[in-house]
Design a protein around this nucleic acid. Sequence first.
DNA 1: TCAATTCTTAAGGTTAACCATAAAAAGTTG
DNA 2: CAACTTTTTATGGTTAACCTTAAGAATTGA
Lengths: 246, 246
Amino acid sequence: MSKRQVIKEKPIIKGKQVTSRGEEDYIKAIYKLSDEAEGERVTNHQLAVYFAHTAQTVNEMVRKLEKKEMLVYQPYKGSVLTTLGMEEAVRLIRAHRIWETFLTDKLGYAWEEVHEEAEMLEHLTSTKLADKLYAFLGAPEVCPHGNYIPALSDLKRDDLDTCGRLKLSKAKKGKQYCLKSVVDDKALLVYLNSLNIYIDLCFKIIERDLVSDIVTLTYDGRNTPLSGAVAQKLFVCEVYDAEDNA
Amino acid sequence: MSKRQVIKEKPIIKGKQVTSRGEEDYIKAIYKLSDEAEGERVTNHQLAVYFAHTAQTVNEMVRKLEKKEMLVYQPYKGSVLTTLGMEEAVRLIRAHRIWETFLTDKLGYAWEEVHEEAEMLEHLTSTKLADKLYAFLGAPEVCPHGNYIPALSDLKRDDLDTCGRLKLSKAKKGKQYCLKSVVDDKALLVYLNSLNIYIDLCFKIIERDLVSDIVTLTYDGRNTPLSGAVAQKLFVCEVYDAEDNA
DNA sequence: TCAATTCTTAAGGTTAACCATAAAAAGTTG
DNA sequence: CAACTTTTTATGGTTAACCTTAAGAATTGA
C-alpha cells in the first residue's frame, strides 16, 4: 500500500528453467553412466565419484529429480531415467554435439577445445535454436569426435556412441579399419593429434601383443603402437577394400 | 583417512566465474542506464526499477561490485563503472550483439526474436569465442537493430548507440532520412515489422505535428504516421541524394 | 530550518546447491 | 548369523541471490 511498492513496476523477464544446470548435469550423467556400465541402474556412488559430490548431495539431487519424475530411484539399487528424463538427456546431448560441430566446422576450433564450451552452451539451447543450428550445419550425422547427433525422438542410447562400431582394443591383427569415433577426453584428443590420428583415418593392424597390451597400427607409412587404455577409447569399422600403405 | 575419501578422486572441471550472471547483469544495466539518463551516475533506485529488485538487494549487489572494483559507489549519488567495469560491460554488449547478428544472419531468426537468446548466450561467451564468431560473421559493424558492435577496447559509450545519428523525433519535415538503428524492444520491433519498416529503409518526412506529436513518413508509395513514443526509439541519418517516391 | 520524503542499511528470512558428521538401515561374507 | 562394509538419510552448516521489515541518515522543499 505504501508508495514504495512502485518499485515493482517492471518485471524484467528472466530465463524460467524447468530444470536447473545442476539437475541437467545429473540427468546427463545418469544417461551416460547407465550406458558405460553394463547394468542399467546408476548408483548414487557412481554419481558421487563422477561429480566428486558427497553421498548426501547425490541423494538430495536424485530425490529431487525423482519428484520431478525424471527418474525412478530404488535405494541401494540406483536410478533409471524415465522417458521424460531420457528426453531431457537426449536434448542436452543433441545440443552439445551440435555446438561442438559448429565450433569446429564453422569457427575453426580444434576437436579438443570444444567440449568445455559446448558443455556450457548446451544448457541454454532451446529446441528451436538447436534445430536451426543443426540445419545451418547441413544436418551432420556426427560430432567432431564421431558420435552420432541424436534426433530428439532418438532415445536408443546404444546407437549414440558405438552402434555398428568396434572398440579398437577388440580389433584383429592383419585387418584394416577406419577410425569412426573417439571418447571426448581432452588428453586423449591431444595425444591423437600428436600421432596425426583423426576421424576417418584408415589403418591396418600389424601387431597385437596381448601381454604388453599394445596394438600396433600402420598408416602414413609408419608404425604406431597404442596402449590398451587408448585403444579402448577408439571405435572403428572394418574396411574391406584392401590397399596397403605399409 | 577413512576409505570414504576415495570419492574425492575426480574433480570435474566447472566454469570458474569471476563475475556471476547477476553481477554481469548489474554491470550491463549500469552501463546502459548511465547512457540513457543525462547524468553519469546510476542511482540504486534506477537499478531497483530496472530489475524489479528491492533497494536492499540493489545495495548488496552494488557493494559487492564495489569490492570487486567494478564500480565506485557514492551513497545518495549513485554508481559509476570503473575502467574494469566498463571493460566487462563492453565485453558483454559485444558478445550480445555478435550473437544477435549470428542468429539473424546465419540462422534466420527475426530481429525481434534474438534478444532473449543473446541475453543468455552472452554470459558464457569467452573472448575467444566472441572473436571467432565475429570473424565468421565477416566483422559486421552493427547488430540487427543497427547498434554498433564495439571492439573490446571501445569504451566510448556514446558511439555505441547513437553516434552520428539523430532521433527520428528530432528530424525535420521535408527532408529525407535513412533508418540506421532502433531500440531493441520486442513490441516495437513487431510493430515495425507490421509497417514494413527495417534498417536502411529510406523515407521522407512529409508532416510533423507538434500538437498530436505525430511524424508522418512516406515510403513504399504510402504515408505512415508514427507516434512520438515510437519516433524516439528510431535513429536516422539524413539522406541528400533526393528522389521522391511519394 | 525543519518536516517530509527518499535513500541506505541492519537484522533476519528463503531457496538452491553444495558441505560434514553421524546414526540407522541394508547388504555381504566368513 | 554375526560382524563388517556400504548405503542412506537426518541434522545442521555455508554461500549466493534474492526477500521483508524497520530503523536511521541525507536530501529537499516550503
